[in-house]
Write a protein that binds this DNA or RNA. Structure first.
Lengths: 118, 118
DNA sequence: ACATTATTTTAGTAAATACTAAATTAATTA
DNA sequence: TAATTAATTTAGTATTTACTAAAATAATGT
């Protein structure tokens, strides 16, 4: 997969754009990112971070047991301004929430799925 | 779904970017687009065209029984230059083919799926 | 060593997606 | 009118994806 495909695939979901936004201005630990996204598990956040990292859209700095992520704004090139423009609107956060709700998929929180071996 | 989400979701697959490229410089009929994509059915192309149209990334002009599609380059804003840059490379067509092959999903051509009522 | 904390990875599930083949719609032509 | 052509839409399937919960990994602290 070339860089363009990885970039556009990674940016193709509202969830990952929300994560990218959280690490846009400052770096944040994976746990802090998860804390800002109350409707998703830590595991899911970690998976999205990996996709963003593999696409080269975020950097990762280990410090102790934490890992700090930060948007690689230069790597986003022409997409940088488009994302910033969208995030500029004051009511945008509400739109993003509605959009996330609309775009949700997969099992819902609290639904029991399966049990793993002990 | 806001415009940004529709745009990035539509651009998120190599197949739709390939279609967009085909209608980048000149308009083409749906059939001509299908003709340039030998590994996909006309129906699948039509579905992709609808997604691109709904996202506002292509325009559609009916003439007789044909429909001519064309990229709405202005609507692509900051993505325009990124796409053009990727398409500029001479060997890019080969890369796109490899990428499409890698990204293929769904039933393969020739596999019998089901039979509809007569 | 053991427990705690932070994160990743794995295994499994539900939903979305990309696709095919067939049916349908619509415009043109015989 | 019926046949032909161009395209869309529908119904059904396989694959991918986004997710959860649990297990595993890794660093730190006791």
């Amino acid at each position: 997969m070339d860089a363009m495909n990885a970039t556009l695939a990674a940016l193709g979901t509202p969830r990952r754009r929300e994560i990218l936004r959280l690490v846009w201005a400052d770096e944040r630990s994976a746990g802090a990112i998860h804390g800002a996204l109350p409707d998703v598990t830590f595991g899911a956040v970690s998976q999205h971070l990996r996709i963003l990292f593999d696409a080269g859209l975020v950097s990762c700095r280990a410090e102790g047991r934490r890992r700090f992520y930060r948007a690689r704004r230069r790597a986003l090139g022409p997409f940088k301004s488009a994302l910033e423009a969208q995030w500029a609107g004051a009511l945008d956060r509400l739109k993003v929430l509605a959009e996330l709700e609309e775009a949700r998929r997969g099992p819902r929180a609290g639904i029991r799925t399966h049990r793993r071996r002990r």
